[in-house]
Amino acid sequence: QEFQFGPCQVDGIVLQKLWQAFWAMKDIVQAQDNITSVRLLRKEVLQNVSETESCHLLHALLRFYVNTVFKNYHDKAVEFGILKSFSTLANNFFVIVSKLQASQEKMFSTRESARRRFLLFYRAFKQLDREAAVTKAFGEMDILLRWMEKFNQL
């Protein structure tokens, strides 16, 4: 499948594979998150994102997921027996980040507004206990995938 995040084009993402990986572990992962009153990827972060902003925002979010969320959730993934799904998502996110890297560096116009959106997510993350925040972020990947789906060039 081909995705167009504003000026950034990303090929080779099979979103169904990512959905399948997430659903295989959704209930296990989300059951560990009992802070029902906090949503990290809330409307203000992902709603009404302009095309040009989307590349920056996705790059920032996925890089955070790769460098922080996946990194700190690996042991839990082993503990819960969900390593296969975990690896599918981690590897695909890593590939997408590297594909976005080059093109998003050349764009400066909407970087600031995308950064403000990311900071909303990041501050909410930092306000939680570290382990709880990682678990919550990991359990919100369906929100991220749902948002990415909109940029699919069917």
């Binding site: 659903w23 209930d27 989300q30 059951a31 998150d33 029902t36 359990g139 369906d142 749902r146």
Partner: peptide
């Protein structure tokens, strides 16, 4: 007792 997180769409 509480439900799992429910997504109508999914």
């Amino acid at each position: 007792k509480m439900t799992n997180r429910f997504s109508p769409l999914q």
